[in-house]
Design a protein around this nucleic acid. Structure first.
Lengths: 220, 220, 220, 220
DNA sequence: AATGAATGAGGGTTCATTCAT
DNA sequence: AATGAATGAACCCTCATTCAT
């Protein structure tokens, strides 16, 4: 057992799960779980059908692994940023959304939203997972920020859950759209998602601000 | 053959396709197209497997029929309402969204959004259809209203496509959610979709309005 | 729905399970359960692979059905005969064994012994079944007869379970042999199973009889 | 490389095939050839899957090796004993059967009977082997003894092949039973195989003996 | 010699679709 | 028009066997 050789095999073996997860995510998002053949996943990962089953005991377990991998809370970072933030809350909102957006929308993770939507009804365990790892933390994070704005007098005192949804749902919907209708057409050539995020947060913030003075500051 | 039976039979016969479409919509939305068995659809429609194939030549054609049926533009009505509207544009926005919402969210049609998202990638013809019958008309309708608000000086002159998305995407996302994660959990017991629509439009309108005076009027 | 036509379809449908059971018994006995392909069974039954699964939910259930079918106690008949018998017990033994032999050895049922032996370890439910339906009733029947012979003074008072085994085990072994080694060679051309049964019972009876007089009677 | 390790390694290496054969016998007897995975055999032998194939070119060859190993005539010993025997033939029969029984029934070899029965139909070469190495020599041995008894006037002149079967088949059947139904249930708790052998041979001998006097001698 | 990762043919099972009734 | 038995292509998964290390 010399180190070099055994290492090259080990490296291969250690890389497999990620290769398989990546391939699976792509295909499950694209075609749906049921319509994706296990062999396709293997092929796209560059291995044979049998190899897939060395790493995951069934197609279903592969699905769950794919989802689990991408839902490990990316939200912690946002929470940390929120805590350290000083200055106008409006600014914080823009920052948090932009950052999340950069990390999610352009990465394969954005596909997981479509995947979850597509498959929860068939695999209800996913729902609990998604709720605990994504929805709940995200809502808490955003609700906390809005609450801060209200408390500081910066924002009007509106119903917080509603505001949270107004802020977040379009983001999620764009992720979903990107991997469904958006992948099939060149609709709205001029539409630029990244610009939209900023515009959307700005628009909502304008709706939240209490005074004309504050609104001017936000627009600055 | 007495009249009654022949009449009731004819009615039955004419009702068949609708029963099948209804059953198919339910199941395709719930489990996805690939995971739904043709026989299940037949069963839920109260007919036999063979009968399904008397009305639709294949499962795929059934899917397309289901989607086609529900996408026949419900938007015309909104457009008509918009044309006839007099008074503040903010009011019109609220009315159009509320009305659409009543007609769509609580009806089976809301499931079509999930269905389209789930299946476009496998049946790209759906994309074109969806674009022409739903996205484009809806965007034009809403864009037209916003444009009217800007033109009349009621709204700030913001980028219209972005505003349209801020307004519409949460609506669509709620439809999708209702039939995916929402069907699996009792998350956010206090959240009331109908109330949200009003709050969301109000929030966006607050963001759109130009003057404090106008904003007060909108809040009235 | 006229009677003739619907009857012909029904007749076909009703005949399927038996056709499948027969084919399955043959093949399972010949090749073993694991080495028999479901499609082979279907083919030998004259139907397609899919049809098998219309009647049995899995290969394993087919196996159990095959075994269940043949173990429905054929022993009741023997018991009845035993009850009505008058005259020397030796005669009764000969009769019961000959009759059972005729009904089992030359029929496909003889294969079930090999099948049970081959598969119990993999499907332990079979064991209980076999014990209750075959071993126990058979032992009781034969033990009862021997007991009668002892009680009447015809037979020496030997250990009954041992005698039962001396009587029965060779019968079972011949069934098993017929479907294993016996099916592969022309070993012992002169050996005639039917004649053996008689000789075997006679030999055992000679061992059981108490007096030379009784022995002579038995030999008659 | 010190002596100890190289020696122990050599011993290990030489022991490998035996470990594999032992493991294979156990598993093939328990689950059948087709249902046993090559890797299981390797595992139970304490080696890796690959190693198995260093010693046997295929699973099938392993099966044949297992059977060949255990069928190398244990019968020669019996023949020798028979030749040297002086005194009543009845005694010799008891001795030969008891000895064979001790060597076979309690050893793993008893499983080979089940294995042969289970697999001959799929590997007919086994049949020839089994016939030449087991059936024929055993029958000759026992037939010879019975013949001696008849010739000496001790036994009645009955059909020898039939007597041989009456004597031997229960023995084989018990071996088979031990590894099939017997391994699955606690049926007949009171039944003691070793005692049965003696009782069985006695019973047959009683049937064979010519005179009451001889019978008494046999019982002694 | 030994390992165990990788392969891919093979077999169990499902299900869209057909067609005799 | 309606049924549902039958089909067989397709897909998930297993496992004997190979081979680089």
């Amino acid at each position: 057992m010399n180190d070099t050789t055994s290492t090259s095999r080990r490296r291969l073996k250690e890389a497999r799960p990620q290769q398989l997860l990546d391939a699976a995510l792509e295909l499950f998002v694209e075609k749906g779980f049921a319509a994706t053949r296990a062999e396709e996943v293997a092929q796209r990962a560059g291995v044979s059908k049998g190899t897939l089953y060395l790493y995951y005991p069934s197609k279903e377990e592969l699905l769950k692994a794919v989802i689990r991998e991408h839902l490990s809370s990316r939200i912690a970072a946002g929470a940390a940023a929120a805590e350290q933030h000083r200055g106008p809350v409006a600014e914080l909102l823009r920052e948090v959304f932009s950052r999340w957006w950069l990390e999610v929308f352009d990465s394969p993770t954005s596909g997981v939203f479509k995947l979850v939507i597509t498959e929860v009804r068939n695999f209800p365990e996913i729902a609990e997972f998604y709720l605990n790892e994504v929805i709940r933390p995200a809502e808490e994070l955003v609700a906390g920020i809005v609450q801060r704005g209200i408390h500081s007098g910066e924002f009007e005192s509106l119903d917080i859950p509603n505001v949270v949804h107004s802020l977040c749902l379009p983001m999620v919907m764009l992720c979903v759209h990107k991997h469904s209708v958006g992948a099939c057409t060149e609709h709205r050539v001029g539409f630029e998602p990244h610009e939209f995020v900023r515009a959307h947060v700005d628009l909502i913030v304008r709706g939240l601000l209490r005074t004309r003075g504050a609104r001017r500051a936000a627009a600055a």
